[in-house]
């Protein structure tokens, strides 16, 4: 019994460390630029941040779980590298349709609000990249949940940090040629530099 609780404690600690690392140290946007164009489009609509983050977290979790389940079959395929994107796209497609159907069935009130967010987050660099990273890092089933949660929450954190500067970076005080997208990229670059300082080395991709 004691051993069971010890292993449970270990699993919990490992999951927490994985999630915190993915959120704060290996943030998908700042360290790997995954889903950066989506982040820039979401940053303009501040009310979208939380629901979009939740939708993205769910789609990442479900897709990563599917890719983990099918990995033994995929890795046995001859030239698996070439076929992997197609199989991942089909998996995301299944999750995409399932999420839309579930949303429509469960909440007719929120469906019109959530639908564009589902469209935007399904085939997203963060979701697709996380499926690859799960495979690259050789995560076990127990690590998939904290990793996917970390990707989603890390995405929300990154968009929140970007939204803090958005209004000021779009004001008249900024030179017209830098105003808007160019200065947002430079601001993201500085935040990325700060995150790089936490890791101290380049991440694998």
């Amino acid at each position: 019994m004691n051993e069971f609780f010890l292993s449970l404690k270990d699993a919990f600690l490992n999951s927490t460390v994985t999630a915190l690392t993915v959120i704060f140290v290996e943030n998908a946007i700042f360290t790997r630029a995954l889903g950066v164009s989506t982040a820039f489009s979401i940053v303009k609509k501040k009310g979208y941040l939380l629901p979009f983050g939740l939708v993205l977290t769910w789609i990442t979790l479900a897709s990563s779980f599917l890719s983990f389940s099918f990995e033994p079959f995929i890795s046995k395929l001859p030239s698996a590298y070439y076929f992997r994107p197609l199989l991942y796209v089909l998996m995301i497609g299944v999750v995409y349709i399932l999420t839309l159907s579930l949303c429509r069935a469960l909440s007719k009130r929120f469906y019109p609000t959530l639908r564009p967010m589902i469209h935007l987050s399904a085939f997203n660099g963060a979701v697709f990249g996380s499926m690859y990273l799960c495979n690259l890092s050789r995560y076990r089933l127990l690590d998939i949940v904290p990793f996917s949660l970390g990707i989603g929450i890390g995405f929300m954190l990154a968009v929140y940090l970007l939204s803090l500067g958005y209004d000021r970076l779009n004001s008249d005080k900024i030179s017209p040629s830098f105003r808007g997208f160019p200065i947002m990229l430079i601001y993201t670059g500085f935040l990325s530099l700060a995150f790089y300082g936490l890791i101290g080395h380049e991440l694998v991709f």
Partner: peptide
């Protein structure tokens, strides 16, 4: 590194 990529793309 990626952060320089962001800065150069911004420029």
């Amino acid at each position: 590194l990626p952060f320089s990529g962001f800065l150069l793309m911004g420029m």
